[in-house]
């Protein structure tokens, strides 16, 4: 998977979980502050990332994920995509 493919997939995935049109989802928008996404949805996003990419997201990282860009960077790191 190329970095661009991963970024596109992540955007689809996050938009799907939070119920937001793709074109309205900005990469650096803060889930809680800008998108009114609560911490429960952030956990659901983690679950979806794990299922989609067959990876395990470390527990300590879950609370740190606040934006799409952060979630994508973490997925890239875990999948070793540069």
């Amino acid at each position: 998977m190329t970095p661009q493919e991963l970024e596109n997939k992540m955007k689809e995935l996050v938009a799907g979980v939070i119920g937001m049109p793709l074109d309205k989802l900005s990469g650096d928008a803060d889930f809680a502050r800008d998108l009114d996404v609560d911490s429960m949805k952030a956990i659901e996003i983690t679950g979806a990332i794990e299922k989609t990419f067959k990876i395990i997201v470390p527990e300590e990282e879950i609370r740190k994920i606040r934006t799409l860009n952060q979630a994508t960077a973490l997925a890239k790191q875990l999948l070793d995509i540069k």
């Binding site: 956990i43 659901e44 679950g47 979806a48 527990e59 879950i62």
Partner: peptide, 11 residues
């Protein structure tokens, strides 16, 4: 058996 301190909100 998902995480230690976080329940699986989607499960």
């Amino acid at each position: 058996a998902w995480k230690i301190s976080i329940p699986d909100m989607g499960g």
